[in-house]
C-alpha cells in the first residue's frame, strides 16, 4: 500500500476514534462507580455542539491565545501522523524519531501553557505553571525511556522500534520497566491520574482544565479534540509496543484497510478500560509529591537502559 495512503488512513482513523476513546473511558469509569454512565458517543456531540456555539474571548488575551488552539491541535495531529498507531511505514514515519516526537509534544504543551497564562486570571497561570513543571520534569524520563526502546530495537524512530518483528520490543524483557515508565509519562502528559483529575470541578486543583478554562466554542472544541487525540495516540502507542500485531504496512493489501478501524477500536478500547481501572483505583497525588513520580519514571527508564546495556555486553 502506498505510504502516503497509510499515513492518511492513520490520521483519519485516529482522529475519528479519539472522541470515542474518551467516551469509552468515561463510560467504563461510570460503570466502575456503579453508574450507567454517559453515552459513549457523547464526546462527538460535545465537539459538534461547541463548534456551533459562539466564542467569548477575554479582552486581556492576545493573538497567542487565538493561535494556541491551532498549534495545540496541529501538534496532536502531527503526532498522530508520524507514530506507528494504525500503520507502520507511512510517509510520515521517518519523522517519528524520538527526539522529534518529544519536541512536537513539548511544542504543543508550550502553546497550551502560553494560552493559560494569556487569560490574565490566576487559574490559567496556575494550570500553566503546573503543566510546565510536569512537562519539563518528565522530559528526562521520556528521553531515557525512548532511548531504551531504541537500544532494544536498534532504531531511534518509534516506527523503527515497532518494526523489529517477532514478539516486538517485548522479546527483550528488560524493556518492561521502560514500558511502565512510558505508562507513567503517558498519564502525566495527558493530564490523567495520578497527576491530574480530568473530571475535577475544583479550580484550585486543576492542571489541564485550568489552562482551557477561558476557551469557549470552536476554540474549546479544538483544544478538547487535541487532548482526545493525544490520549488516543499515547494509548495506541502503548498498546502497539506490547502488541505490534495488526498494524498496516506497505506490504498489506487494500483489503486489510477495512480491518484497520476495527483493530484500532479494539486496541483503544482495551487501553481505555485499563486506564479507567487505574484511575478508579487511586487518589490524585499531592502536587508537591510529584517529584517522586518524576523520579520514579526516570528511574524505571534508567533501569531498562542499564539492563539493556548490560545485556548487550554479555
Amino acid at each position: 500500500m502506498n505510504p502516503a495512503l497509510l499515513t492518511t488512513v492513520q490520521v483519519v482513523v485516529v482522529v475519528t476514534f479519539a472522541p470515542l476513546a474518551t467516551g469509552v473511558v468515561r463510560r467504563v469509569k461510570a460503570f466502575l462507580q456503579g453508574r450507567h454512565g454517559p453515552p459513549v458517543l457523547l464526546p462527538y456531540w460535545t465537539l459538534l455542539t461547541l463548534m456551533r456555539k459562539e466564542m467569548v474571548l477575554s479582552t486581556s488575551t492576545s493573538w497567542v491565545f487565538r493561535a494556541a488552539p491551532y498549534v495545540v491541535l496541529a501538534t496532536a495531529l502531527l503526532s498522530a501522523a508520524v507514530l506507528p498507531l494504525v500503520a507502520r511505514g507511512g510517509i510520515a514515519a521517518p519523522l517519528s524519531h524520538m527526539v522529534v516526537v518529544a519536541g512536537i509534544w513539548m511544542l504543543g504543551a508550550v502553546f497550551l501553557v502560553l494560552a493559560g497564562l494569556d487569560s490574565a486570571g490566576a487559574f490559567g497561570g496556575m494550570g500553566s505553571s503546573r503543566e510546565m513543571t510536569i512537562s519539563a520534569f518528565l522530559e528526562p524520563a521520556l528521553i531515557v525511556t525512548l532511548a531504551s526502546f531504541a537500544l532494544a530495537s536498534g532504531s531511534s524512530t518509534v516506527d523503527g522500534m515497532l518494526a523489529i518483528g517477532g514478539r516486538g520490543l517485548l522479546s527483550r524483557p528488560w524493556v518492561l520497566p521502560a514500558l511502565a515508565s512510558l505508562g507513567l509519562i503517558a498519564l502525566g502528559e495527558n493530564a490523567r491520574y495520578p497527576v491530574d483529575n480530568p473530571a475535577t470541578h475544583l479550580e484550585l486543583t486543576m492542571v489541564h482544565e485550568a489552562m482551557v478554562l477561558e476557551y469557549s466554542g470552536p476554540y474549546l472544541a479544538l483544544m478538547e479534540l487535541a487532548s482526545m487525540v493525544k490520549l488516543a495516540v499515547f494509548a495506541l502507542l502503548l498498546v502497539n509496543i506490547v502488541l505490534p500485531a495488526g498494524l498496516l504496512t506497505t506490504a498489506t493489501g487494500i483489503v486489510a484497510l477495512a480491518a484497520a478501524p476495527l483493530v484500532t477500536a479494539v486496541k483503544l478500547g482495551a487501553a481505555m478500560v485499563l486506564l479507567a481501572l487505574v484511575e478508579s483505583s487511586m487518589a490524585k497525588l499531592r502536587f508537591y509529591g510529584l517529584p517522586e513520580y518524576f523520579f520514579g519514571s526516570l528511574f524505571l527508564g534508567l533501569t531498562s537502559l542499564a539492563l539493556g546495556l548490560f545485556a548487550g555486553w554479555l
Binding site: 454512565g37 453515552p39 482544565e209 478554562l213 474549546l220
Partner: peptide
C-alpha cells in the same frame, strides 16, 4: 450525579467554567 439518578447518561454534565456551559 449519584448512581441512582446518574444524569450523565442523558448527556448532561457539570463543567467548571461558564465559558464551557450550555
Amino acid at each position: 450525579g449519584n448512581a441512582y439518578y446518574d444524569f450523565e447518561r442523558f448527556g448532561l454534565s457539570f463543567v467548571a467554567s461558564p465559558r464551557h456551559a450550555d
